[in-house]
């Protein structure tokens, strides 16, 4: 199970900001700024972060919609950035994506059946096409009579099911889900999450699950990575991250979430962050989080913390902070 499927090495995606008559590059938006992680076969890696932290850019870079500035992406041990068009086409059937907004990610003039069969046609798998599509529709819980319906005739949850069926059509190994449930109502969100879990078990899929909702991420992920301003702040097994978060940012995020239970809500201590997300075109010096970090020191302003792991005390738990919050929690509470 621990075989690596996708490996990201120091990935950077910088967008140039062009200005003036000659469109000279004045500055860069560092959307993804040095991110590394591995996704093993059959597991779910959750990526969580606030808007503007670069999580969607990361997804778009992996599926080849954007060409990264530097770094490497390895799929089954092979670097995919060197691939030519033909090789890339062959690879892409193994990496599929489900998008956030079920209202705009489906062509309003195509029927459900045609939407789901589009990837099959692109790869010339047209034998028994209709049967395969009906099989996929059944798999995601759509009815056969929905085949000829147009997207506007479906509800949000059903549309997301069409998007999932489309992603499954070519039997991919990896599915990248970019905020797949954030546009849905609570009761429908639960249906889609359960469906995704069933499909993973049935088909042995690997998920890269991107969301801003920490509760959803915790529910579905084996491993979780927390991003802030284009960098990975913390990465670990889900249990370890939620029970013993080491980065102050993760702690702040966790404490900011309202819990739907008034007693537990009242018991909690909060770290309320002041200020707002800095602009990714001018990230702060040193640790990018120091401008909002309640525990930042002078040292944090000048030095960039390494993405490191304390193998003795918390193996496999990476954190990018000079002062991880292992034993300091009580100390800070007292202050």
């Amino acid at each position: 199970m621990s075989e690596s499927l996708l490996e990201i090495r120091d990935l950077k995606m910088h967008f140039p900001m062009k200005q003036g008559v000659f469109q000279r590059t004045k500055n860069e938006v560092k959307a993804v700024n040095g991110v590394s992680f591995t996704v093993n076969k059959g597991e779910t890696l959750g990526i969580v972060g606030e808007s503007g932290c670069g999580k969607s850019t990361l997804a778009r870079t992996i599926v080849g919609l954007l060409k990264p500035t530097s770094g490497d992406i390895l799929f089954e041990g092979e670097s995919i950035l060197q691939y030519n068009a033909k090789e890339f086409h062959r690879l892409r059937r193994n990496i599929q994506m489900v998008y956030q907004d079920p209202f705009t990610s489906l062509n309003p003039r195509m029927r459900a059946g045609d939407i789901i069969s589009a990837p099959l046609k692109a790869y010339n798998q047209t034998d028994n096409l209709k049967n395969r599509v009906l099989e996929l529709m059944d798999l995601v819980g759509l009815k056969a009579e929905d085949y000829h319906k147009l997207p506007h005739q479906f509800s949000g949850g059903q549309r997301q099911r069409i998007g999932i069926a489309r992603a499954l059509a070519l039997n991919p190994k990896l599915i990248i889900l970019d905020e797949p449930v954030s546009a849905l109502d609570v009761s429908v969100q639960a249906q889609v999450i359960n469906l995704l879990e069933d499909l993973q078990e049935e088909l042995g899929l690997t998920y890269l699950f991107i969301a801003h909702d920490l509760s959803v991420i915790r529910h579905i992920s084996d491993k979780v990575g927390v991003m802030y301003l284009g960098k990975m702040m913390e990465l670990s097994e889900s249990e370890s991250l939620y029970k013993n978060a080491r980065h102050p940012y993760t702690n702040a995020l966790l404490s900011a979430i309202p819990i739907p239970s008034s007693a537990r809500e009242k018991k909690r201590e909060r770290i309320v962050l002041t200020g707002e997300l800095p602009s990714p075109s001018e990230p702060p010096s040193g640790c990018v989080f120091h401008t909002r970090c309640p525990f930042a020191t002078e040292f944090c302003k000048g030095n960039v913390p390494a993405f490191d792991v304390d193998e003795d005390n918390s193996p496999g738990h990476y954190v990018s902070c000079f002062y991880p919050m292992d034993n300091k929690r009580e100390e800070f509470a007292r202050q």
């Binding site: 609570v186 009761s187 969100q189 639960a190 249906q191 999450i193 359960n194 879990e197 909702d213 920490l214 509760s215 959803v216 915790r218 529910h219 579905i220 939620y242 966790l254 979430i257 819990i259 739907p260 239970s261 008034s262 007693a263 537990r264």
Partner: peptide
């Protein structure tokens, strides 16, 4: 939240993923 007396509220609360859950279980399907 604690003396929920009707099925809709009850199901809604059970269909939420819990951030501080002890174990991972299936979400309740409405």
């Amino acid at each position: 939240f604690y003396h929920t007396s009707m099925p809709y509220t009850w199901s809604l609360l059970r269909s939420l993923p819990q951030i501080d859950a002890e174990s991972r279980h299936r979400l309740f399907n409405i």
